[in-house]
Amino acid sequence: MYLYVTTSGLNSFFIETGELANFALRFFKEVFKRPFEFKEFLRQCYNMGNRSLLLVGVTGFIIGLVFTLQSRPKMIELGAVAWLPSMVSISIIREIGPIITALICAGRIGSGIGAELGAMRVTEQIDAMDVSGTNPFKFLVVTRILATTLMIPILVIMSDAVALFGSFLIENFKGDVSFTLYFDEVFRALTYSDLIPSTIKTFFFGFAIGLVGCYKGYYCKHGTAGVGLTANAAVVEASMVVFIIDFASVLITDIFYSI
């Protein structure tokens, strides 16, 4: 019995992975086919980008504040308080900004997509689209995945900027560091090997969040109750995939930038 449960669990995991890969493959097949649903794409971009901005901005700001406040005493103890801007900027740009934003977006956007597509599936809206001659995959899935892929990097950049600004405020209040000095320190510490890989990986984060959300929603089953489960699963799986991508990206970056 136990063996059966394990193997079936493992099987379903592999099946899920395979289906997700298939779904991604279908996305790449469809994305280059005309016509391109530009209006829907813009609508999704607006929904995901602009509407997430406040949430992401506030989170980023608080992360910047808290991170600086927490590290400050220790840095003072070490006599390295002058290095706080460089330390904070590297951690935010490299890891904290992308991962926090991606997780928040997995929560907000991933679950949103999962629930929306799930609801559309169970109320036959997707079938209705199919019948009315619009490829629902192109109209719903391709636009959403593209939108997350392009919007999340922008959200991450904004979140980074706001977080650095939050960190600057603390430094300014507590340490009398001027705006110019703070950002001079920040950009002195940063290199392209910090900014570029972490920006590239956010595209993958966005893609993963969109893909998992769409996949979960598109194949939603079990009626209205299934929609809730779908949204939940979308968040959990998207977050997990984000972490896996993050890990992989660190490994790859390491290979490229280690001399």
Partner: peptide, 26 residues
């Protein structure tokens, strides 16, 4: 909405380019 989206994208892009520029300048 499209206008707001445009502003959003442009601000994000400008921030990124500014980051790239300042790092490069340093």
């Amino acid at each position: 909405k499209v206008l707001k989206l445009g502003i959003f994208i442009i601000v994000g892009t400008i921030l990124f380019i500014a980051g790239v520029y300042f790092i490069g300048e340093k």
